[in-house]
């Protein structure tokens, strides 16, 4: 076995520029309290704040890193919703070249239906790599990247943390449990589920986002004739009974600290 280290990136090798597509998902901000809708089969989406799925931020960063190093382009793709424009303009402000908004789809689509939609949208785009986030918080029927790879008939690999390119060959790290990684090689086209970018995802200057909102255009693609089924249905959604496991400690900071200290000391003795 080999010892862990990040790739030694070879500056000298001629690498083909790649066109990279990053599908972005908007997910409810998990810091907020989530409530269940009236029929108890979905979350109540009315007053939710949505934000970019955190792993998509990493996928976008990794795509931008690859572009900055080897050339090529980055296209971001998202389904239309209230907050989509802002997220897409933010991606442009970070350095993406093109932003595509997919219109004409209902909310809360299954991953299976999304894979069909994305497959359709991608047929009009020239791409070498698709970098998706490894998973999203609202996914119930499987990871889009894998479903998409299979739908497109190209390979997929999830839980990827490092990508190196030499010539036309990609070397990839896939994470397993316990800090063990597997190294794979492949050639484009391929779909990769990104767990973490090689660097912390960048921020977009707010002024730049505002400027682009005035100046730049988002492309639009309309989804058509998509089979929305996933073969499963939600019978019930619910919030688990809170604190069922934990005994909650109340009081001021001093009192709580004393209680915890007692509990730990008792366990240790």
């Amino acid at each position: 076995m080999v010892r862990a280290d990040r790739f030694q990136r070879d500056e000298g090798v001629d690498t083909k520029p790649m066109n990279i597509v990053v599908p972005i998902k908007l997910v409810p901000d998990l810091v907020e309290e989530l409530e269940i809708n009236e029929d108890g089969t979905d979350i109540d989406r009315e007053f939710l704040t949505y934000r970019i799925n955190e792993f998509d931020d990493h996928a976008l960063e990794e795509a931008l890193q690859l572009k900055e190093k080897h050339g090529g382009s980055v296209t971001v793709l998202a389904l239309e919703s209230e907050e989509t424009d802002k997220v897409l303009y933010t991606a442009l402000a970070k350095g993406a070249d093109r932003a595509v908004k997919v219109t004409g789809l209902p909310e809360g689509l299954s991953s299976h239906a999304l894979a069909r939609t994305m497959g359709q949208a991608l047929s009009n785009i020239d791409y070498d790599l698709v970098l998706v986030g490894v998973q999203a918080a609202d996914d119930r029927d499987g990871q889009l990247g894998v479903l998409l790879g299979k739908t497109l008939g190209i390979p997929h690999l999830s839980v990827v943390t490092d990508i190196a390119v030499e010539g036309n060959t990609l070397t990839l790290h896939k994470e397993y449990a316990g800090g063990i990684m597997a190294q794979f090689e492949t050639e484009p086209k391929v779909v990769l589920g990104i767990q973490a970018a090689r660097v912390i995802p960048r921020y977009a200057p707010v002024s730049r986002v505002r400027q682009l909102m005035k100046e730049a255009e988002l492309d639009e693609v309309e989804a058509s004739d998509i089979d929305l089924g996933s073969g499963t249905s939600v019978r019930r959604m619910y919030t688990p009974t809170r604190g069922e496991g934990a005994e909650m400690l109340e009081g001021d900071a001093e009192e709580i600290a004393s209680r915890i200290a007692d509990i730990i000391n008792e366990k240790r003795s």
Binding site: S111, H112, A115, V134, Q135, D139, R140, D141, G142, Q143, V146, L147, G149, K150, T151, H156, L157, S158, V159, G193, S230, G231, T232
Partner: peptide, 18 residues
């Protein structure tokens, strides 16, 4: 994750994850 979702497409079987 790689195996379950791709099996679902390959064999056209429904999948529930997580």
């Amino acid at each position: 994750m790689d195996l379950g979702a791709s099996l679902s497409v390959e064999r056209n079987l429904p999948l529930v994850a997580y």
